[in-house]
């Protein structure tokens, strides 16, 4: 497996009047070429901030604090995306890395036909009109949409069709990476299943790497190859979807999975307490106030990320080189 994206020690802050509040802290993450990587966590945990930072789309009051995002193109040349500016950045986005922001299906311009909006995206990123027209037709075929949607307005399309228009636009320049932020959140389960199925197929057929952001563990279990679990601005666990679901290591991941209302309808307990916001991140491990296994060290030191099992990383003091003496 070749790595396509390396995120190293990425931190993002919010500038306030007198101080900077850190919202994303020291994120390390590697994305393999051709995989579907799921980023999961509660709202406010920094999922969206992470992908916006990867795309170098941060705007004030969000600012970079530390770290780099290295993109390794197919010729093996690494580039730090955070150093790209102006035209180079513009050429890079969409050609190499496309983005489906949260709720973008509702962001289609209501007074422009679909064709105009799709073509504009491509020409803005340097494609000629004629070629753009051809590419969007191919892209629509990929998502099983009839060509006649090009002449429609967004209100004439159903939610699922609008989302497919957005996906078609995103893949029309054959990017290496597609970042989809909650692409199915507002859709009903049948449409959601169709869209996820479509994304997975596109990923395999076109060899596009997908970073899928969602808060829905069901969606993740069905779609993702690997999962990164986030809590309060940090990644707490990374592993294959199977490992994370079947033998999760971090207490937060375990509670998150246990709190899902399940098939059999048996009683489940919700997670006690609330996730802290960036303005009151606790010191040490940020999960310690809610953790059933809290130890003294958790209140003081940030747990390092350790590879507890092959390719299964966890940031928790219960795991580490020395034998843990918990419970």
């Amino acid at each position: 497996m070749t790595t396509i994206l390396q995120i190293r020690d990425l931190s993002v802050g919010l500038t306030g009047r007198s101080s900077i509040i850190q919202v994303l802290s020291n994120v390390d993450l590697e994305v393999d070429a051709g995989e579907i990587l799921g980023v999961v966590g509660e709202s406010g945990c920094g999922k969206s901030t992470l992908v916006v930072a990867i795309l170098n789309l941060l705007e004030l009051p969000q600012i970079f604090q530390t770290g780099e995002v290295i993109f390794i193109s197919s010729d093996g040349k690494p580039r730090n995306l955070l150093k790209l500016t102006g035209d180079t950045l513009r050429q890079f986005r969409w050609r190499q890395m496309a983005y489906i922001p949260q709720g973008s299906m509702n962001a289609l311009n209501p007074v422009l036909r679909v064709r105009k909006q799709m073509i504009e995206t491509l020409t803005q990123h340097g494609m000629a009109d004629r070629e753009a027209d051809e590419q969007i037709r191919l892209a629509l075929q990929m998502v099983h949409l009839n060509q006649n949607v090009l002449d429609l307005y967004s209100h004439e399309l159903s939610g699922g069709m609008r989302q497919r228009v957005i996906i078609a636009t995103a893949i029309s320049m054959h990017p290496a990476i597609l970042i989809a932020d909650e692409p199915t959140t507002a859709l009903d389960v049948v449409t959601q299943r169709l869209i996820l199925q479509e994304l997975a197929r596109i990923c395999r057929e076109l060899g596009i790497t997908i970073i899928l952001v969602s808060h829905d563990m069901g969606v993740m279990a069905q779609t993702a190859d690997r999962l990164a679990v986030m809590y309060a601005g940090r990644i707490v666990e990374i592993g294959t979807t199977n490992e994370v679901f079947k033998s999760s290591l971090h207490p937060y991941t375990q509670e998150l999975i246990a709190s899902i209302p399940n098939q059999s309808g048996e009683h489940v307990e919700g997670l006690a307490g609330e996730a802290p916001g960036p303005w009151n991140y606790p010191p040490g491990c940020r999960f310690h106030p809610r953790c059933p296994f809290v130890m003294e060290i958790c209140r003081q030191q940030v747990p390092p990320s350790v590879e507890q099992r092959p390719s299964h990383w966890v940031s928790c003091h219960l795991f580490g080189k020395e034998e843990s003496s918990n419970e």
Binding site: V189, V190, Q192, R193, L194, L196, Q197, D216, M217, G218, V219, M220, A221, Q222, T241, N242, F245, K246, I257, I260, N262, Q263
Partner: peptide
């Protein structure tokens, strides 16, 4: 269709057929 399309939070129970 509706009930079979619920995303079950279990990677062993993935959808098999293509819709």
């Amino acid at each position: 269709l509706l009930i079979s399309s619920i995303p079950i939070p279990d990677p062993d129970k993935r959808w098999r057929e293509t819709l």
